[in-house]
């Protein structure tokens, strides 16, 4: 009986500390110190409307925009997901070759031209916001032609390393 009492008291106390006190404390500090991030790193347009989160990829189909990595869950967010197809999956092989063909077509490339691996293989989260600078430069000509922009200018925006596709596209919209 005494053991049960100790069990209940210990469980209740630890639940209050770790299940109520702890998340509330972290939320309180986060709200003051890192309000932008704590609320989901949201970005708004010039008119104040919510455009998305800088951390979550959006689907882009128009030639005027850079395209992110493919999403096996079609950019769904609740929940997002991956293909979970393995190294010897015939289904994955087919998807990859379809994506490569579509990319070559969109960029006016010959049938066996190489395409960046990350643009034909879906990310783990289905919401990967980044692509490599190489994968962005692969799309440079298409985007600049569609927008009538100077390639050197946009290439400078891409920079080196990794690019956040949504932020890059947002910048493009402010340019033109």
């Amino acid at each position: 009986m005494k053991t049960l009492l100790h069990a209940l008291l210990t469980f209740a106390t630890l639940t209050l500390i770790t299940g109520v006190g702890y998340p509330l404390l972290v939320t309180g500090i986060a709200r003051v110190a890192f309000a932008h991030q704590a609320n989901g790193s949201l970005i708004t347009g010039a008119d104040g409307k919510l455009l998305g989160s800088e951390l979550l990829a959006q689907e882009f189909k128009s030639p005027r925009y850079f395209w992110p990595r493919p999403s096996a869950a079609a950019f769904a967010t609740v929940p997002s997901g991956a293909s979970n197809l393995g190294s010897t999956s015939a289904a994955l092989k087919l998807v990859i070759s379809d994506r490569a063909a579509a990319l070559r077509k969109a960029h006016n490339l010959p049938d066996n031209a190489p395409v960046p691996a990350e643009l034909v293989q879906a990310s783990g989260s289905g919401l990967d916001p980044h692509i490599s600078a190489d994968a962005a430069r692969f799309q440079l000509k298409r985007v600049c032609t569609a927008r009538g922009l100077d390639e050197a200018l946009v290439s400078a925006l891409i920079g080196d390393g990794q690019v956040n596709v949504l932020k890059l596209n947002q910048t493009l919209d402010t340019l033109h």
């Binding site: 293909s83 010897t88 034909v120």
Partner: peptide
């Protein structure tokens, strides 16, 4: 590389960052 899928690096399911 992955000869089955014909890709040099297996990025399926991995994040760029």
């Amino acid at each position: 590389s992955n000869p089955s899928l014909g890709v040099l690096t297996m990025l399926e399911g991995k994040e760029t960052r």
